Amino acid sequence: MVTILLLTVLLAFLARWRVSRLFYYPDHVSYGTPADLGLKYEEVTFPSRDGTRLTGWFVPAVGPAHGTVIHFHGNAQNMSAHLGFVDWLPAAGFNLFVFDYRGYGKSAGRPDRCGLYEDSLAAIDYVRGRKDLDRNRLVVLGQSLGGAQAIVAVGGGDRSGIRGVAVESAFFSYREIVRDKIGEIPLLSLLKTPLARLLTDDDLSPAAAVGKIAPIPILLIYGTADPVIPYAHGTRLFAMAREPKQFWTIDGGDHTEAFAETDSPHRLRLIAFFREVLGVHKGD
């Protein structure tokens, strides 16, 4: 009996470790640089809150800058693979800062939940500390896992200078997304709630932080056909967010689809949102 109990506990701990690893799919492949797109850029290194060395790219605006966008990318590959979601922002008059969490790309370390939180805080600190930009004109864009990081970092960290937050396809909480994924497995779906509680916790989840972002405006963006993060995660986060807040529904939209195509109307909508929260007037 004792042996069975010990094996059960061991399996539970192994399962928790396995589930936590499923949130991160980093690689170290270079998929290109801003220079490949004709953009000037600076490759930078900066320390995370615990000293882990992180890497990023600072891309200056084409012409005078309205402000600076800090991009939190999704969970797969590294920042070079996600550049296409945001490479159009410098031409729209925004400085752009993209960075890799620990274990992604050239950043040191291995990814874990607490580490990514510290990395996210450090990225905002780094941008805020640059002397060549206005530290009081910052906006944040997070997608998928990066959206969750953005919510938690802004909601739980130093918000000075941040004028707006846009989040696409972020999950409501760690436990809820694990519950949803277990629910997709026929033999385990009836046990999805107790299994989710066993396999993970909700520390540093967006649900606990989204209500703390106000009075900074927040924009949430979700596709109704997202196979990765169910649309309901967005509506639940929106319900917990405080004004000022906006919610965009992308009818038939897939995961992080809003800004993927060059002719997407949502790119212009995002530019308008950033200009509004920064107080940029027509003609500026």
Rank of each mutant, 00 (worst) to 15 (best):
R16V: 13
R16K: 15
R18C: 09
R18D: 03
V19K: 04
S20L: 10
L22N: 05
F23E: 08
P26M: 07
P26A: 04
D27Y: 01
D27G: 05
V29W: 15
V29I: 15
V29L: 12
S30D: 15
S30W: 10
G32M: 09
G32D: 12
T33W: 00
P34R: 02
P34F: 03
A35Q: 15
D36A: 08
L37Y: 08
L37E: 12
G38Q: 00
G38A: 01
L39R: 04
Y41I: 02
E42I: 06
E43N: 04
E43I: 02
E43C: 08
E43T: 14
V44K: 10
F46S: 13
P47G: 11
P47V: 12
P47T: 12
R49D: 14
D50H: 05
D50M: 09
D50W: 11
T52G: 12
T52D: 03
T52N: 00
T52F: 04
L54C: 00
L54R: 05
T55L: 02
T55R: 13
T55E: 08
T55I: 03
T55G: 05
G56I: 01
W57Y: 13
W57V: 02
F58V: 08
V59L: 10
P60R: 01
P60H: 05
P60W: 14
A61K: 09
A61Y: 00
A61E: 10
V62Y: 05
G63T: 09
G63R: 02
G63E: 08
H66K: 15
G67D: 10
G67H: 08
T68W: 02
V69Q: 10
I70L: 13
H71N: 14
H71F: 15
H71V: 11
H71K: 05
F72A: 12
H73N: 07
H73S: 11
A76V: 05
Q77V: 05
N78C: 00
N78T: 00
M79A: 15
A81F: 15
H82E: 11
H82P: 02
L83V: 13
G84L: 14
G84C: 01
F85C: 06
F85D: 09
F85S: 06
D87G: 11
W88S: 04
W88Y: 14
L89E: 03
L89T: 07
P90Q: 07
P90C: 07
G93P: 10
N95E: 09
L96T: 07
